[in-house]
Simulated assay, not measured.
Amino acid sequence: TLVCDEVQHLRSKTTKKYRAIKKLAGMKSIKYRVGLSGTPIYNHGSEIWPIVDILKPGLLGNFKEFCEYFCYQDERGRAIVVPSKRDGLRHVLQRDVMLRRKKSDVLKELKDKVRYKETIDADETYYKNELNKIWSKLEEEQKSAETEFSKVASYQRAIQSERQAAGVAKLHHVIDFVKNIMEIEESVVVFCHHKSIHKLLHESLQEFNPAAIIGGQTDKVRQENIDNFQNGGTKLIVVGLRAGNLGINLTRAKYVIFAELDWSPAIHRQAEDRLHRIGQKNTVFAYYLIGKRTLDEHVANILVDKSYEIDAIMDESRDAYENKEKAKLILAQIHDKIHTK
């Protein structure tokens, strides 16, 4: 028997990891193949094909056949599952290869999870100045690029730089939001993407003596920070989205704030579930802070589109989160505090 935990890591058929597991799964001695995941699809529904190809080869045809029947190509050449075919794909998966158990099915005592998007101000002058620098540099690099790869790499660097500029532009308002929500409740988790933003948040919120989880930490230091937060040594922890979205428990808090956005809705859900898991006694409130008139607004729209596709394939009905009125009330309290300063 072959068991693949966190099977979503096999979602790309071009990786060495996928090819190695595919070869292993094809051995005559392997009678059964099992894949385990809470988030098998990270971005687009077509990511399910490589996983199914390992667990039950041929069920969805070859990749070309799968795409021709289930998908269309977007403007960037990515395979997106056609909305009218998403129910059909889910039925095939549930009939032949997928046993789906949601937390609401197995953890009856677990309270709700509420997501709330909050648009906050950003420093437009700073943001526009940074954009001018980024795109001027991009133009120069595009002119001097000798290969198509160099052009694509240059464009990707520009996008990453713009994401970071958006994070810095709204940072002052993010810090105000965090400070004010901590006055209302006790413990808060703040997720961010860039190491530079993590550093600025950690420095700007020193009055709360925050714990930290970030890439590059040793396992010992990482666990010490988690324990410090979980045991009440600090009421605030700042966490890197990709460094702390899996394998940790942050149930002491019921409020999680996303200071920056990732391109993948699965990353956000995994991050939310550091709080919304066994041991959590309260409703979890997740606040997504969107910088006004920055790249955040575009990323947020992309995340919504991806979430609709994923939810339609994985579940017959999307999660219905309650207690939104309470979330709005908390936001109103925060705004009152900010405006009276």
Rank of each mutant, 00 (worst) to 15 (best):
V221S: 10
M27Q: 12
K254M: 13
A169W: 04
Y321I: 14
F229M: 10
D296F: 05
Y18P: 05
Q164R: 12
E185V: 03
M182A: 09
N62D: 06
A20G: 10
N180G: 09
R242L: 08
I257P: 02
H298Y: 14
G35T: 08
N43L: 15
D273M: 02
G38E: 11
A169H: 06
A332S: 15
N132H: 14
H172L: 12
F258Q: 08
F149M: 15
T119E: 13
K324D: 01
K128W: 14
D227G: 08
F285Q: 06
G38S: 11
V238C: 10
D5V: 09
L331H: 13
D74Y: 10
L10E: 05
S154L: 02
E185I: 01
K137P: 09
V81A: 03
R163M: 12
K170N: 11
V3Y: 04
L200K: 14
G58C: 08
D296I: 02
D219M: 10
R163F: 06
A122E: 03
G244I: 12
L60S: 02
V299L: 01
S196D: 07
Q223N: 13
V256L: 04
A320R: 07
L205M: 00
K328M: 08
V106R: 00
E207P: 05
K13R: 15
K292L: 02
A211I: 01
H276G: 01
K56Y: 05
K13L: 15
R252D: 03
K22I: 00
F258Y: 11
L201T: 06
A327V: 02
R277I: 07
Y18L: 00
N43M: 13
H194L: 03
S150R: 13
G88P: 08
A145N: 05
K235Y: 06
N180F: 10
Y287S: 05
V299E: 04
R90F: 00
K324R: 11
T147A: 03
I330H: 05
K117E: 15
A79Q: 15
E207N: 08
V284R: 02
K28R: 13
M182R: 13
A20W: 04
